[in-house]
Design a protein around this nucleic acid. Structure first.
Length: 367
DNA sequence: AATCCGGGGTC
DNA sequence: GACCCAGGATT
């Protein structure tokens, strides 16, 4: 007969309702099976500020391409970045590979199992260290993420902003207090799973909650007030011109700086969209022709891109470092940001249409 | 404590 | 459109 502690209630629910995820052992796996800590490391890096549904396909491809921590350590950083392409927060990819290399060089290829050593790894903070220690090694480490914050605040009817310093201290203390003596990784996973499936930000499913009898927010009818809404400042708009400079089947692309947004990724030649920059490209070409516009929305700003097609007279001299002429097919070897992936799609459609026009022209002339 | 760092799911 | 997401690093 199951005990009625908080942990046993939550774990009982978790055993019946948890999702089957590629970095998780199947529910009927024998207890002798061990989770591969490398899979937990990769999944936790991808899951930072990113929803499970978005991560799943990226995770599968990433593990297929880099099956072990050694493989990831040896890989070309550009290949790692390309595997991350489209997922966002690209410093995570850089940090993950740096962590893999550090683990190989300083920990003999074995991921450390205690929080203090895990915290030395780049890209691993308090949450990720706790997740690795508990989920991969079943060590008694607390975790506090967005889900756990919401669940704990509602359980205790705490109405303050969980991002504040005082609440963060309280949350970590509370997360440590509730750790059970067994199945620690499952318990921490269950807290997050509850936040993702039941104790959701909007319209939580309190009737289905396994611990509803312990929830003060539910008893006091204040669930919808927790956590308090956050104020978002207006997003500035950034306007850019993207020049698809074309010559003999190739386009000119450039690599972004090593720091800042989309660090180290590649793009078509991009300039601020203030005045006409087309004369400053240093390449002789026909008048640029606008072929489309696209918007790209980020959390804190908004981009508007005007896409121009430019037919260059010649490729000129060897392009400077950080610039290269590539075909659209070769472009798949370079990591591109989402908006520039869309530009590449526009150009591919354009080339397809040009091909079809040529075919029609040749068949009609044959008649 | 505030900002920066992407992109997408969800209501 | 607003909010949030298995956060971390930097200032």
């Amino acid at each position: 007969m199951p005990k009625t502690t908080f942990a046993s209630q939550l774990l009982h629910w978790y055993d019946r309702h948890r999702r089957s995820l590629p970095w998780r052992l199947s529910a009927d796996a024998s207890s002798a099976d061990r989770i591969d800590p490398y899979l937990v490391l990769v999944s936790e890096a991808m899951l930072q500020q990113t929803q499970v549904a978005t991560v799943i396909d990226y995770f599968r491809r990433f593990i297929a391409q880099f099956p072990t921590i050694g493989a990831l350590a040896k890989a070309d950083p550009q290949d790692v970045l390309r595997a991350w392409q489209g997922l966002g927060y690209y410093s995570r990819a850089r940090n993950l590979q740096s962590a893999a290399r550090m683990i190989v060089a300083e920990f003999g290829g074995e991921i450390p199992s205690n929080v203090d050593e895990l915290l030395k790894l780049p890209g691993v903070g308090r949450y990720t260290a706790g997740a690795l220690a508990s989920i991969a090694f079943d060590r008694p480490a607390p975790i506090v993420d967005g889900n756990v914050s919401r669940v704990l605040c509602r359980l205790e009817a705490m109405k303050d902003d969980p991002r504040g310093k005082g609440m963060q201290e309280w949350l970590w203390k509370r997360a440590e207090q509730i750790i059970p003596t067994r199945r620690i990784g499952d318990f921490n996973s269950a807290m997050m799973e509850l936040g993702a499936l039941v104790c959701t930000p909007k319209s939580p499913k309190c009737l289905l909650c396994p611990v509803k009898s312990r929830c003060r927010a539910l008893a006091e009818r204040v669930v919808d007030q927790i956590p308090p809404p956050r104020k978002r400042p207006p997003r500035p708009i950034h306007r850019r011109q993207v020049f698809a400079i074309h010559c003999r089947g190739r386009y000119l692309i450039e690599q972004r700086p090593a720091k800042g947004r989309w660090a180290g990724m590649w793009q078509f030649i991009t300039h601020p969209w203030d005045e006409d920059q087309s004369q400053c490209l240093g390449i002789k070409m026909d008048t640029p022709q606008v072929i489309g516009e696209l918007e790209h929305e980020l959390t804190h700003r908004q981009y508007q891109f005007q896409v121009l097609y430019c037919q260059a007279k010649s490729m000129g001299k060897k392009p400077p470092a950080g610039r290269v002429w590539v075909t659209l097919a070769e472009l798949s070897r370079y990591p591109l940001s989402r908006p520039h992936l869309k530009v590449a799609q526009m150009l591919a459609r354009r080339e397809d249409q040009a091909d079809r026009r040529r075919l029609r022209g040749s068949s009609s002339s044959a008649r």
